[in-house]
Every structure is written in C-alpha cells, then in structure tokens.
Design a protein around this nucleic acid. Structure first.
Lengths: 192, 192
DNA sequence: GGTTTTCCATACTCTGGCGTATGGTCATTG
DNA sequence: CAATGACCATACGCCAGAGTATGGAAAACC
C-alpha cells in the first residue's frame, strides 16, 4: 500500500499545520500567514484549523516555537561537535549554504522584527548566536569587550548577507564568487 | 500672520501626500501604507487622495522616487565633499547616527524587499553605495576584486546593524558602547 | 455673471480575511 | 447498539480597506 500523500492524509494534526505555516512564512513572509489561504494550501477548510487552534496568533506562536527549538538543536549539534574555536567560527559562515528552510524562515522573521510575537524570538536567537560567537573569539584570545564587538560585527555580516540575498544581490551559493567572498570574510574577521 | 499648520492648509498637493507616506513607512513599514489610514492621518478623506493619485500603488511609486532622489543627493553631497578615501569610508559609518528619516525609511524598505515596487529601488540604492565603497577601497590600494569583496563586507555590516537596530539589539547611538563598536568596525574593515 | 476647473466629501459596492455557530461523518468507547 | 469524541464543512456576521460614482464648494477664467 502506497504511503499517503499530504492531501490524502486521513486527518491532520496540529503539527501538520505548524510545518506548513513555516513553509508559507519561508516563501512569502510572516504577514502572508493567514488562516484561509493556509487552509486552501492544505486542501482543507478553516473549520479544521479552528478545531486545532484558537486563532491565527496561536498558530504563529506554535510555529515560531517549533522553528526556534529546531534552530537551537541544530546550532548546538553543528557547533558543539567542533573543538577548535576558529573552526567553529568558520563553520558558522559555511552554514549559510545549508539548512535552506531554517535560513529562509529566519530571513523572513528578520523582515518582521516589528511583529510582537516575532521580536522576542529574534532577540533570543540572536543573543544565543552572539554568545556562541563571543565565546569563540574569547577562546581565540580576544578580551571580553573586543570579543563582544567582534561577535556583533561578525553577526552583522551574516544578517547583511541575508538581506542582500533577499534583494537578489548576492552571488549564487554554489559559485566561485561566493566562495571567494566567504574566504575574504573569514580572512578579515577571524584571527589566524 | 501665523504660518499655516499642516492640518490647516487650504489644500494639499501630491507632494504633501508623498511626504506623509514616507513618514508612515518609516514608522510602520511599507505594508502599513494604506489610503484610508493615511487620509485619516492627513485629516482629510480619501476623495482628495484619489484626485491626486490613481491608486495606492502610484503613491508608493512616487514616494519611493522622492526618497531615492533625496538619498542619492545626500550621498553625493556627503561623500563628494571628502577627498581622502579613508575619511569617506569612515564617514559612511558615521552617517548611521544622522539623517534619521532616511535610515528609518531605508530600514523598512529592506524589510519589504519582496515587494515588486520596492525591490528595484533597493537594488539601485545598494549598487550605488557598493560602487562608492568599492571605489574608495581601490583608492586605498586594493585590487578590484578585493575592493568589491571588502565593499560587500562593509555594506553587509551596515545592513546587519540596521537589522539589529530593528530588533532593539544595538546600543544607543549616543552611547560610548556604540562609539567603541564603530571604532572597532573601522579598525577591522578600513586599512590604515 | 456664467462657466470651468480644482479639490474634496459622502455613500456605495466589492473583496479578502477573521472568527463563530451549527451540523455531518466516522471512529472510539462502554 | 447508543453515546461520545475527533475532525471537518458550511454558512454567516463582521471588519478594514480599495476603488468608484456623484455631488458640493470655492477659486479661476473668459
């Protein structure tokens, strides 16, 4: 018996709605997350939605929670496996070309920073990442203040790159130009 | 005779609508630009709006045009007055604390990069600024490829800082921490 | 002085979306 | 077998906004 396709599933769960919500956010942004278009995309009516969720806002909150937990686990696993701080910093940049959905959601969340449910998530995620970066720079010998500044500078480069990507003004992630740029960034920001 | 206050003006011009549109975008983002709320803000009805503009989109286009021309003039004036390329690069960062409305509009335009009318404007503005930065780095002795990479890196730092500002995760523009960070950025990115 | 133009107000239709009330179907439980 | 629960569809009311049609007031023009 063939496995059920999405629109052939007997019933949907709250998790199905949350995952689809994240895909919609990745594609069209937070403001595009609306009950009726999401239901149409799921091939079902909003009656089902309102059975699982009290409203649009509670779906958004749960979807953001799911994304944040996934991102946190990935960060810990990806960087936790690397001993040398320099290698951790280098791999931070190399992650841009991986985990496409995570970055696309993050990019759209950045664009919606003024949204009351989105801002605290962005704050926690950025703070966690800045702490990771700051710790790595301190392990490389920078004092706490310089490490913090270098972490903010490094994270700004990452955010700026996401923004230029949204403006379609970055080289393709698989191109030599992109590789050259990443090498340039690494040489400029990470002490050898 | 006292000068007329805004809401006491005899009649409004298209320029009045365009300026108010930019202020609304700076405060609440591109998606908040809507005819009826803007009319209420102007203390008038949308009947006047539709006399001056064919629709919301034509207002947005005109407002973006006004902003882009203003930004281009400012960039040329501010950087055009400075001979030494290093000073031009330094002043690029110091501009962040000035021209509040220009930066606030730009920040919100960045957030709306997916919007069909906004994206080409962002592309032109970023390209113009990248060329300014690239030229300055070449004057400082970098070859064309390195200068371009360093320009992109430098501009990413600026965009990243705007994003962290929107997330309320930057120090105040008047604080010593901000000054220290700017000094750190200058030391790291601009050859002495 | 009458006509035209400029500017704006009012009332209306339409749309997309939020959320609720109600009822139907099928699976589960006792 | 009947009752209950899970899940969903349908119909409805409401809201905010886009845009249009129409008319009024005042200034400008001949």
């Amino acid at each position: 018996m063939e496995p059920l396709k999405k629109n052939e599933k007997v019933t949907l769960s709250a998790e199905d709605w949350e995952r689809e919500a994240l895909e919609l956010i990745a594609e069209n942004g937070v403001q595009a997350l609306a009950v009726e278009p999401l239901a149409r995309r799921m091939g079902i009516t909003k009656g089902s939605f309102y059975w699982h969720f009290s409203g649009r806002e509670s779906l958004l909150v749960k979807a953001l929670q799911r994304w944040e937990e996934h991102d946190g686990r990935n960060l810990n696993r990806a960087l936790g496996e690397i001993d040398h701080p320099r290698d951790r910093l280098v791999s931070f940049f190399r992650r841009v070309g991986k985990e496409k959905l995570t970055h696309e959601v993050y990019s759209e969340l950045c664009a919606a920073a003024g949204h009351p449910q989105v801002e605290p998530v962005l704050e926690r995620v950025a703070e966690r990442r800045l702490e990771h970066l700051s710790a790595a720079f301190e392990e490389l010998g920078l004092d706490a203040v310089k490490a913090r500044n270098q972490a903010r500078l490094t994270y700004s480069v990452y955010l700026g790159f996401l923004q230029l990507q949204r403006q379609h003004q970055t080289p393709s992630l698989t191109s030599e130009e992109f590789d050259a740029y990443i090498e340039h960034v690494i040489r400029t920001l990470i002490p050898s």
